[in-house]
Design a protein around this nucleic acid. Structure first.
Lengths: 146, 146
DNA sequence: GCGACAAATGAAAACGACTTTCATTTTCAA
DNA sequence: TTGAAAATGAAAGTCGTTTTCATTTGTCGC
């Protein structure tokens, strides 16, 4: 880990170590704020921007990637061997994962057919999770147009 | 169109008519600013918030839906009969579409297996389009971590 | 070990898309 | 026609993200 950083020309600071460690201690789909909170528990002198920059760095060295659902919050997900899709509950914002093995081939073909160089993909299902599907909607969840 | 609005309890104003008309004159995947520009060409007294609110309204009445790629800009795409996926070129930001017929079944099953109520989905391929794939990268395109 | 110097840090400010507020104007059903 | 409800436009507010800048800290060559 330290080596990975140093070989790529990044320095290893105590803050950086703590941030990296904390990131991997947390579960999947971490937001900047979640990580910031976690890091703060151990060292409350670390600044938000340092956490943010290091989260970006974690992505830069390939250990995580940004996940962007449409809710205005960027999440960071450590890269796994297996690609996966997301099930996003619009009520509780929970994020589940599902297997996309059967889909990747189709995507690769779609890219080919469009003369497109496939670099990545995103497959997302929006809806209600098991817990939330029971509770009826209180109000419209589309934009409110004021 | 006017009827659709009035039956749903919305009023028909000149601004609203112009905005709706302009939206459908534009191509697919329209941003607020693009629509705002377009509308301004015809009536430069219309405010940004009016355009924005009406774009939301267009979604609300089911004539369009928001498309959210990870680039921080919401696009509005008029609803089509056929669901489709997006090919997003990270270089020129172009947005192409592809058929997802073969994928929807898989998604429905994934939802079922996770006790998830499927309300919508998003399938996106990121990469380089035909035009951009030829040009080599100038620089890293991941976060810059300052 | 000792500098030098590039990189990292933290606080604060800047950014930018989106959303709301509020005073005023307009629509439209009765 | 008229009054209640909705729409408008300008301006300000929100909020996550990103940058700035002065200062501190690793790292590499000696």
């Amino acid at each position: 880990m330290k080596e990975l950083l140093r070989t790529k020309g990044f320095k290893v600071t105590p803050q950086r170590e703590l941030i990296f460690r904390s990131f991997f201690e947390l579960g999947r789909h971490v937001t900047v704020d979640e990580l910031y909170q976690k890091v703060r528990e151990k060292d409350n002198s670390i600044g938000y921007s340092t956490v943010w920059r290091n989260l970006k760095l974690i992505c830069r060295v390939g250990l995580a990637e940004e996940v962007n659902i449409g809710d205005g919050l960027t999440r960071y997900d450590r890269t796994t061997a297996a690609p996966h899709g997301h099930l996003f509950c619009r009520r509780c914002k929970k994020l589940l994962e599902f297997n996309v093995e059967r889909i990747v081939g189709i995507l690769a073909q779609a890219a080919r057919e469009n003369s497109f160089t496939l670099e990545g993909f995103k497959v997302e299902i929006q809806g209600l999770c098991e817990d939330c599907r029971r509770v009826p909607d209180r109000e419209c969840d589309q934009g409110k147009a004021n």
